[in-house]
């Protein structure tokens, strides 16, 4: 069943973040919270892993939320408009999140991590849990999906760096508030930049609250074949793509993850420069500051 992989909807949250609704009915049926896909924009482009931020089985779509930081994601921002198609969308990959019998759950999302957190949060809610959301953004301009979250949360704390929306402070502040209010939290789910997930894990460690994090190492195939996505979990080496992406936050070596995420920094810089030059040459504005 060749798919047409068309973009049916797009929502630009900020100058650099946007959501794409991609048509892939089979994937929409198969997707479970916590899983990701690998997309290829065009011939010769990278294979880019993206967590599934939502799926709509009736419409046959999955939603991906992207931050345009490097060459590939900026190219996506420019080219993946409504009506355009991906060359490939493979997945769903990874082991789905275990939505167990937790009665009280805090779902913590930071920045772009707020998007992939959504399916888990919804699943916990639908499973009958008391769900608290703690979501953090740089400022009110970066805020998105707050209504979507509010409709599935029993309590929602929004945190911004400057206090322009919700409370002023990091998500760990919001999390601490939840922990002090409820002494019977079964599970904390955290998705966001590694530094944030590390801070969340350190916040819950003294309380011995089970903490699940979703890791986003650099990937190539996403099928367990290359080991590029390996992460340190306790004393073990695991592959993020097939053994994860969810791991026990108290076992993850976040420093190792952060080092490994930087391993192509120089190349990424080169690719971005080259791409921006070629955009200038073509007279296309990149970065979309004017959007």
């Amino acid at each position: 069943m060749p798919q047409n992989l068309k973009i049916l909807g797009r929502d630009d949250f900020s100058p650099s973040t946007f959501a794409l609704e991609v048509y892939h009915p089979q994937l929409a049926i198969a997707a479970r919270p916590g899983q990701f896909v690998i997309v290829i924009v065009s011939r010769g482009a990278e294979r880019i892993p993206l967590t599934i931020a939502d799926f709509d089985r009736e419409k046959g779509t999955i939603t991906l939320v992207i931050q345009a930081v490097g060459q590939s994601t900026k190219q996506m921002q420019d080219e993946m408009v409504v009506g355009a198609s991906f060359l490939a969308v493979v997945g769903p990959m990874g082991i789905p999140s275990k939505i167990g019998h937790a009665k009280k759950v805090v779902c913590v999302g930071g920045g772009l991590g707020v998007a992939p957190l959504f399916p888990q949060l919804r699943a916990h809610k639908e499973n009958g849990a008391y769900v608290m959301g703690v979501v953090g953004f740089r400022n009110e301009n970066f805020l998105f999906w707050e209504k979507k979250f509010a409709s599935y949360c029993d309590e929602l704390i929004i945190c911004t760096d400057d206090g322009s929306a919700g409370i002023k402070g990091l998500v760990t502040l919001g999390l601490e508030q939840s922990i002090s209010k409820h002494d019977d939290i079964d599970e904390v789910v955290a998705i966001g930049p590694p530094i944030m997930m590390k801070a969340v894990a350190e916040t819950t460690r003294p309380h011995a609250i089970k903490t699940v994090v979703s890791l986003n190492p650099i990937m190539v195939d996403g099928t367990g074949m290359c080991g590029g996505c390996r992460v340190r979990i306790g004393e073990e080496t695991k592959f993020g793509c097939v053994d994860g992406p969810d791991f026990d936050g108290h076992q993850v070596d976040f420093d190792d993850l952060m080092t490994r995420l930087r391993r192509f920094a120089a190349d990424e810089h080169l690719a971005l420069e080259r791409w921006q030059e070629s955009c200038l040459a073509k007279g296309v504005t990149s970065g979309k500051e004017n959007r």
């Binding site: 010769g44 482009a45 990278e46 060459q71 590939s72 190539v220 195939d221 192509f264 690719a271």
Partner: peptide
């Protein structure tokens, strides 16, 4: 895989380093 499947030898003409 980078070299054979992704043609990374041609980076940055292709996307994969």
């Amino acid at each position: 895989t980078r070299a054979n499947l992704m043609d990374a030898g041609d980076f940055p003409q292709v996307g994969t380093p």
